[in-house]
């Protein structure tokens, strides 16, 4: 049932990477519980523009949980408190009349704030460029079932591939570690025959890049897994460690 609620927002405002940020408080009235969290922010921005103020900058794109653009640390949780949803899939029906909602950007040294709630996640792209691909030389078209892959393996690979690169794992981690992301990207390829060929090289260069970019050392707190909107499991991190240690021992 649609309801209208009044809420107070505490939003992090920061003009640029070098500038000092602070919280600003806004009151919003008559927000429909049917609206999504980002629609609520659109309403806020519309209101700010009407008052001839600068709107709150935040990342978003598909608004259906597949692109990984939306971020936001909402009331102490990346992507809000709901499990397995991205911020764009979060609904205002999860909030009550009179609630105060604190919205912060991802905070991690490797993800500097660009402006307000938007952070620079290009570090993830750099990790991908370091090895998150297969160099295909496909030749002719193979028969669809020429290389049989056991269902459980295909499932594991598919689960790892559901990572959308949003960075919530880094945002949630007290060590600023990117291991869940890197492990998902390494696993989705290492599990399948096409990716196995370059597996050792890939894991070494991706980890080297991750370390170089200033992400932390994983101490297995599992905060990443608890907050990941795609429920990527830390068993991928065990696989990443395994792949890396084996690759290094073989050298």
């Amino acid at each position: 049932m649609e309801k209208l609620i009044n809420i107070t927002l505490k939003v992090w405002r920061q003009r640029g990477p070098q500038e000092k940020g602070a919280f600003e408080t806004y009151q919003l009235e008559n927000i429909s519980t049917e609206s999504s969290f980002l629609e609520m922010l659109d309403v806020l921005n519309e209101k700010l523009v009407k008052e001839r103020k600068e709107p709150v900058v935040f990342d978003h794109d598909c608004r259906e949980g597949i692109c990984g653009m939306c971020s936001l640390y909402i009331n102490g949780h990346p992507h809000g408190k709901d499990q397995e949803v991205t911020t764009c899939q979060l609904h205002m029906r999860r909030f009550n009349d009179g609630d105060t909602i604190t919205i912060e950007p991802w905070r991690s040294a490797a993800f500097p704030v660009i402006r307000d709630l938007m952070v620079d996640r290009s570090a993830f792209d750099k990790i991908m460029q370091a090895g998150g691909y297969t160099s295909v030389n496909t030749g002719g078209i193979p028969d669809a079932n020429a290389i049989p892959i056991p269902k459980p393996v295909a499932d594991e690979a598919m689960d790892a591939a559901s990572c959308i690169g949003c960075g919530a794992c880094v945002a949630a981690c007290k060590n600023g570690s990117a291991m869940l992301f890197v492990s998902a990207k390494v696993s989705q390829l290492a599990l399948l025959p096409q990716g196995k060929v370059e597996a050792a090289k890939r894991v070494k260069s991706m980890i080297a890049k991750m370390d170089e970019l200033g992400f932390g050392n994983c101490t297995n707190t599992r905060a990443c897994e608890a907050e990941c909107p795609k429920a990527v499991s830390i068993s991928n991190i065990a696989r990443l460690n395994r792949e890396f240690i084996c690759a290094k021992l073989k050298d």
Partner: peptide
């Protein structure tokens, strides 16, 4: 149309 802010900073509007 009204566009707040400046053109030479990140301006989503």
């Amino acid at each position: 149309v009204y566009i707040p802010g400046e053109a030479n900073t990140l301006n989503t509007e």
